[in-house]
């Protein structure tokens, strides 16, 4: 009973060790599946890699052929008394084995680009990070203050939100051609697409968050003599800042999605360009490595921002559970618990 409660308690938080075990397992399980398909030949391996074509007219060495074709060809060759082809079972080239991808994490950085004017992988990554940072920054410089204004004053909400609501349904990639026409083919249109994709959501999400500030806090501040802009600065913004911070973390995740779209606009650039080139060269191990790098960068950033949040907002430390819905990772950072209030004098 107790063990059952430890693993499957309804809506109950698991002990820290169990949480860690499950987190590791959540990565180990897909990896195990991938390894099984890659290393156990009879599970899938639908192709045959020809080592010796024998007397076959169709096959040549280092060719991958479907297993059915290989077997029927060999039957024909055997019937004709000719030398059968030899080979071993492999997976398609688009599914490299885990070790190849792991190796690619290193070799992708050390392999010089094929063409002299192509960027190295680290240059591609830096380009992507610069694009997303600039796009998100420009969007936030206008979006966050506007969101706060809309959340605070109905005037600004009525003035902007209907249009923003309409605009947010226009898919950012639809503006690709327009952005190129206006801003050229370099980074301008890419940053613009990230801004279009982020800004309108940002205004709505943040104004909603600000609107949810407990009205009792505002009333309390009013009875303490706080009014106007000072009320916004001293009460409304601090009361919503932790939730705005969480919103920003989620929005940054969306911005990464728009990055991949943005990078194919105009001249293809950044990590998307790298992935496309590698796919063209059929270096699928590099393709997988590059895709995973995006995940790792995204997760690391969020990880860091979550940790930074606990430092910036000490009064939220005990309420980690709220943010944990988005990032269970946060829990692995032991936040320094604020000094426990020792013997509480009879209230």
């Amino acid at each position: 009973m107790a063990a059952h409660r430890d693993w499957l308690g309804l809506k109950m938080e698991l002990p820290p060790r169990r949480r860690l075990q499950l987190t590791i397992l959540s990565f180990v399980l897909p990896l195990a599946l991938w390894s099984a398909i890659s290393y156990v030949p009879f599970l899938w391996h639908p192709l045959v890699h020809i080592t010796d074509p024998g007397d076959s007219e169709y096959f040549s060495a280092d060719m991958d052929v479907p297993r059915a074709d290989f077997l029927s060809q060999n039957r024909e060759l055997a019937a004709a008394g000719q030398k059968p082809a030899a080979g071993y079972r492999v997976n398609p080239v688009y599914l490299p084995a885990p070790h190849a991808v792991v190796r690619a994490f290193y070799t992708a950085f050390t392999t010089p680009p094929r063409l002299p004017n192509e960027p190295w992988l680290h240059e591609s990554l830096a380009h992507s990070i610069r694009t997303i940072t600039l796009g998100f920054l420009f969007s936030s410089i206008i979006g966050v203050p506007l969101g706060i204004l809309c959340g605070t004053y109905r005037f600004f909400a009525r003035l902007t939100e209907p249009f923003v609501e309409f605009f947010r349904y226009l898919p950012a990639p639809a503006f690709g051609a327009l952005c190129v026409a206006i801003l050229g083919i370099d980074d301008g249109p890419k940053i613009a697409i990230i801004i279009i994709g982020t800004f309108f959501q940002q205004v709505l999400v943040i104004s909603n968050t600000v609107r949810k500030v407990d009205p009792a806090l505002i009333e309390a501040a009013q009875t303490l003599g706080s009014r106007g802009w000072r009320l916004v600065r001293r009460v409304i913004i601090p009361a919503s800042i932790t939730d705005i911070y969480t919103d920003m973390r989620i929005l940054l995740g969306w911005a990464w999605t728009y990055l991949i779209v943005a990078e194919v606009v105009g001249t293809m650039s950044g990590i998307t360009y790298f992935i496309n080139q590698q796919a063209r060269y059929r270096n699928f191990d590099n393709v997988y490595a590059a895709i995973m790098m995006i995940g790792i960068i995204g997760l690391t950033t969020d990880f860091f921002l979550a940790w930074l949040g606990t430092k910036l907002f000490p009064w939220k430390r005990r309420r980690v559970a709220g943010t944990a819905k988005i990032t269970p990772w946060l829990k692995f950072f032991p936040s320094k618990a604020a000094p426990k209030s020792s013997p509480i004098p009879a209230a």
Binding site: E219, A220, S226
Partner: peptide
């Protein structure tokens, strides 16, 4: 005014909460 729901500002320490009105 003292409300039923406490309405202390969660982002301020006890001292800063009491200082709020004075600073205003």
């Amino acid at each position: 005014m003292v409300f039923q729901g406490y309405t202390l500002f969660p982002w301020l320490t006890v001292k800063r909460n009491v200082m709020f009105g004075l600073e205003m």
